[in-house]
Design a protein around this nucleic acid. Sequence first.
DNA 1: ATAAAGTCCGTACCGGGGTACGGAGTAAAC
DNA 2: GTTTACTCCGTACCCCGGTACGGACTTTAT
Lengths: 215, 215
Amino acid sequence: MTIGQTARAAGVGVETIRFYERQGFIDRPPKPLGGGYRRYPSATVERIRLLRQAQGLGFSLREAATLLDLGSRPDARAESIRNQAVQKLADVDRRLEELGAIRGALVELLQTCPREGPASCCSVWQALSQPAAHSPIEGNTTMPQHTRLAIEGMQCDGCVRVVQQALEREPGVQRCIVYLDNGQSEVTHDPDVVTPERLAETLLSTGYRATVVSD
Amino acid sequence: MTIGQTARAAGVGVETIRFYERQGFIDRPPKPLGGGYRRYPSATVERIRLLRQAQGLGFSLREAATLLDLGSRPDARAESIRNQAVQKLADVDRRLEELGAIRGALVELLQTCPREGPASCCSVWQALSQPAAHSPIEGNTTMPQHTRLAIEGMQCDGCVRVVQQALEREPGVQRCIVYLDNGQSEVTHDPDVVTPERLAETLLSTGYRATVVSD
DNA sequence: ATAAAGTCCGTACCGGGGTACGGAGTAAAC
DNA sequence: GTTTACTCCGTACCCCGGTACGGACTTTAT
């Protein structure tokens, strides 16, 4: 099969196949020695279909490709596949929660908004003018701030080490203590250099979801 | 106020302000005639805060800017603001529905998935249909390289996630699978972009000692 | 034999929301 | 008066999932 036939069979565009090849999600068959067009095995069609299926379940292409490679190994176990799905479910749940919070806020604003009148009467407009709940307004003093973070997903002291390293590497962090038993961390930092939210973001990009505990 | 002071007051980075200016979301004050730094009015701080607030309600920056311009006109009516919010709510509802469908599919698959056994028993895998072993046809082009790493100190699947993220973030890495049981990882990467040794260094700086396993 | 269709390959671009870098100029603090 | 911090400006890059273009080539259909 040529690339065009493969694309039609898989229900995608030719450019999409080339894109997947560039990204390494599918193998690129070699060009025939005598010259001519590349020939695609029918397995490629199947693989593309599987990638799209997994995409439909919320997986990114990279995750989908990992999943397929994971499952096509001879010693593949159900647990490893299941694990990926569980992770993805948690991911989806998190996004649902975020979106639900946004929806709740919008619904509430719309309920209290009069349908007419000047813009200043509109509750949506008023909500925008409210100061942020977490505004980092600071004086000119640079007193160290103590922040407590609740960290999800730490399960062993390897995690503790990673989390501690990530926090200490952050500019503005003076010292931090990470507890495995309650999943929390106490960070001493300069609030002018790094906000608690920034610390949480740092951990998120390291792989741990963290929230600021107000005490 | 200079740009840095404005950024601190608004709780964003300097680069963010410049980005907003480039995108036309905020006005860019003219440079003083005698030369020197641009001076920002305090209204800019307010505008940035409003933009971020609207972002938090689910609006894109472009929508947020439109909303602000809409509301700050003298003849602004509550209806026009309200209308934008209603549209956004519909948008949020649509995304919630899509995400809910994905969640439903995942939950159902996980319920019927046995916790052990070969991958072929896993309902998630079955949902993706047949395996169709990814045939390793090697061409003459620079094909991705498969590297196996032995990683010390991984003790839970949180570690697995961190290691996987760290590897996938490395340029040149196409995908990787991390196994908790044998402490190894299989990485597919472009050898021209990133060497196996470089991968090990990456993990070391993440907090895990890794060695390349020759197979 | 020739025209139409298909392929190859590199490269650039879309939208969304920024971050990062580097060299030069400027302002402020000590 | 020197050092340090800050600003200015252009440009490039990040993720994600592709789409588009253009010139040269190859295959197929008539």
